[in-house]
């Protein structure tokens, strides 16, 4: 079935976008994560059952790889100059010219990672709540409360930092 190949590429493009958003717009890290996830997917392709949810399978692999990466980085902390990180975070990328985009970027960055993940998976990638719950290994109620907290936190930040921003994009 040729549609399978197209689906796969669609899902992988989606993975790349999610990885970029998850890793705070750091392109190199995001590419590393996606490559690692795809490598794992190739190695474990036997575990995919035809006809099941390919997208959820891929996102779950990426999630697991990410968790492992975070864990191993935590085990071997790398010395990083805080100023470097800071400047990387606030350097406006080309697509962040609009004030509200910069504010949104910052608001998303400041979310606790567990909330950021849920928000990105749901709002950016359009995953179903139960898919997210299964992928993260948490009850669906947890997904909903994280989603709610993430959205309210961003809402508060955007409202504080520039009340007009929200209205302007509409």
């Amino acid at each position: 079935m040729s549609k399978f190949g197209v689906d796969l590429e669609v899902h992988i493009a989606s993975l790349r976008r999610y990885a970029r958003a998850l890793l705070r717009n750091n392109r190199a890290d995001a590419e590393d994560l996606v490559q690692e996830a795809l490598t794992r997917a190739v190695a474990r392709s036997d575990s995919f059952q035809a006809g099941t949810n390919l997208r959820a399978w891929l996102f779950t692999i990426l999630h697991n790889v990410h968790v492992n990466q975070v864990r191993s980085k935590a085990a071997r902390p790398v010395e990083v100059d805080v100023d470097d990180v800071e400047s990387k975070l606030v350097t406006p990328a080309r697509q962040e010219e609009r004030v509200e985009l910069r504010e949104m970027m910052r608001a998303v960055d400041e979310l606790p990672e567990e909330q950021r993940k849920v928000l990105l998976l749901v709002a950016l990638e359009g995953l179903k709540y139960d898919e997210v719950a299964e992928m993260l290994g948490v009850p669906i109620g947890t997904v909903m409360s994280r989603l709610s907290r993430a959205r309210e936190a961003i809402r508060t930040k955007l409202a504080n930092e520039g009340g007009v921003a929200l209205r302007r994009v509409k």
Binding site: A13, R16, R17, R20, A21, N25, A30, Q95, E96, R98, E100, L101, M104, M105, V108, L119, L120, A123, L124, R151, I154, R155, L158, L166, V169, K170
Partner: peptide, 14 residues
């Protein structure tokens, strides 16, 4: 609007 902003930020990756 938040969803729209997320797409504005990250759809460029696509």
């Amino acid at each position: 609007v938040q969803t729209a902003l997320l797409h504005d930020l990250f759809d460029t990756v696509l």
